[in-house]
Amino acid sequence: MDGRGRALDNVFVERLWRTLKYEDIYLRAYDSPTALERGLGSYIDFYNTERPHTALDQKTPAEVHWAHMPET
Rank of each mutant, 00 (worst) to 15 (best):
M1K: 10
G3I: 04
G3T: 07
G3N: 06
G5M: 10
A7H: 09
A7D: 11
A7I: 10
A7F: 13
L8I: 12
D9S: 14
N10T: 10
N10D: 03
V11L: 10
F12D: 09
V13D: 11
V13Q: 15
E14C: 07
E14M: 09
R15M: 08
L16Y: 12
W17K: 01
W17T: 00
T19S: 08
T19M: 01
T19F: 00
L20R: 00
K21F: 01
K21L: 02
K21R: 06
Y22E: 12
Y22W: 10
E23C: 13
L27D: 13
L27M: 14
R28T: 13
A29T: 12
A29N: 15
Y30R: 00
Y30H: 04
D31I: 12
D31V: 08
L36D: 01
R38Q: 13
R38Y: 07
G39E: 09
G39F: 03
L40T: 03
S42A: 15
Y43V: 03
Y43S: 05
Y43T: 04
Y43F: 14
I44P: 01
I44R: 05
D45Y: 09
D45I: 00
Y47S: 02
Y47V: 00
T49H: 15
T49F: 07
R51L: 04
R51S: 05
R51Q: 05
H53C: 04
T54Q: 15
A55Y: 07
A55H: 02
A55T: 06
L56H: 08
L56V: 03
D57T: 06
D57L: 08
D57N: 12
Q58M: 06
Q58C: 02
K59T: 01
T60S: 09
E63I: 02
V64P: 07
V64H: 05
V64C: 08
H65M: 12
W66G: 00
A67G: 00
H68D: 09
H68I: 00
H68Y: 11
H68L: 10
H68E: 09
P70C: 08
P70K: 14
P70V: 11
E71K: 15
E71S: 15
